[in-house]
Design a protein around this nucleic acid. Structure first.
Lengths: 66, 66
DNA sequence: ACAAAATGTAAAATATATTTTACTTTATGA
DNA sequence: TCATAAAGTAAAATATATTTTACATTTTGT
């Protein structure tokens, strides 16, 4: 699964730290998520969706092998 | 977080077992997910989205306390 | 160039998703 | 009614998300 969190974060001019605080996770979680190092929960995906004003499907996308 | 998986499953006329096989999880995972007993991964949400032809945001929704 | 902020990364600890097995209860069709 | 499929549930085991702490590297502004 891939995502465009880094782009969305740039659009909304947020640091990883700020984004982390807004959705209630650690900075490392944001960092690892952007690097697609693991699969976040659906609650996190929905929170990002809400904050960015974008559907989950436009932030996250399935890849081969998922 | 709440969801309408049970309804979607009815629309597509699938048993929990069949749905589980389609998206590659156990039947208990589907059952527990319908009962909102835990938060599934974003990959699962996207697979349901793909199978049901519905955006993740129309299958899952945040609630107070999430 | 310097200082400070932001980002990348990693290991250990903890919380939680998911599986497996197994049993019970409920719905469905002959 | 009887047999069977489907759904509900639970405990233990395993995999994985997330946090915490800590440090290295890169970026940014002055």
């Amino acid at each position: 699964m891939k995502n465009n969190i880094k782009v969305q974060r740039a659009i909304h001019d947020l640091t990883q730290q700020e984004l982390a605080e807004r959705i209630g996770v650690s900075r490392q979680t944001i960092n690892a998520m952007e690097a697609a190092k693991y699969v976040p929960s659906t609650v996190l995906a929905l929170k990002l969706s809400e904050l960015f004003g974008k559907p989950v499907n436009e932030i996250f996308e399935l890849e081969e092998g998922d």
